[in-house]
């Protein structure tokens, strides 16, 4: 099939790529742009491992086509840290052992960041429902939820 030319902004950089109209945004990020931080756990929108933001909105990149990213601004887990400085969520996830294998971590971090941008003071239930689209098979979520709540508290204090 003929490939299509796309221009988008990814983690602050302008990128151009050619992609098959059947390729998902996740395929493009991983295979064409070498951003393998977003993971494919299901390809059907059920696991959240591929979570990224498109124009500030949290989405499953496996459910969007690469060609749909034309003119859009995309942020992935690779865009979370500011140079050497980790995002507070990233630091807290390490400190709390909110990851075991770590395959769900990029998606959960992107999703949690997007939650805290919308709601800096979420309840435990709000965190649980916001992250209900992100499967983690290792942790039982306990340490993830605590890490998000505690980061939110720290960030509120700092601001």
């Amino acid at each position: 099939m003929k490939t299509i030319h796309v221009t988008a902004t990814v983690n602050g950089d302008t990128v151009e790529y050619l992609c098959d109209p059947r390729e998902t945004l996740l395929d493009v990020l991983r295979d064409r742009l070498n951003l393998t931080g977003a993971k494919e756990g299901c390809g059907t929108g059920d696991c959240g491992a591929c979570s990224v933001t498109v124009d500030g909105r949290l989405v499953c990149s496996c459910l969007i086509l690469g060609v749909e990213a034309e003119g859009k601004t995309i942020t992935t887990v690779e865009g979370m840290a500011d140079g050497e400085t980790l995002h507070p969520l990233q630091k807290k996830f390490i400190e709390y052992a909110a990851l075991q294998c770590g395959i769900c971590t990029p998606g959960i971090l992107v999703a949690a960041k997007s939650l805290l941008e919308k709601n800096p003071d979420p309840t435990e239930t709000e965190v649980r429902y916001w992250l209900a689209g992100n499967l983690c098979r290792c942790t039982g979520y306990d340490k993830i939820i605590r890490a998000v709540l505690d980061t939110a508290a720290d960030m509120r204090e700092a601001s």
Partner: peptide, 21 residues
Amino acid sequence: TRPDRPDGLDKVTGRALFGAD
């Protein structure tokens, strides 16, 4: 004791290479 894991940074930044990466 409960120190940070050595591969923590790789795993929160998306740098860790899994099977499909």
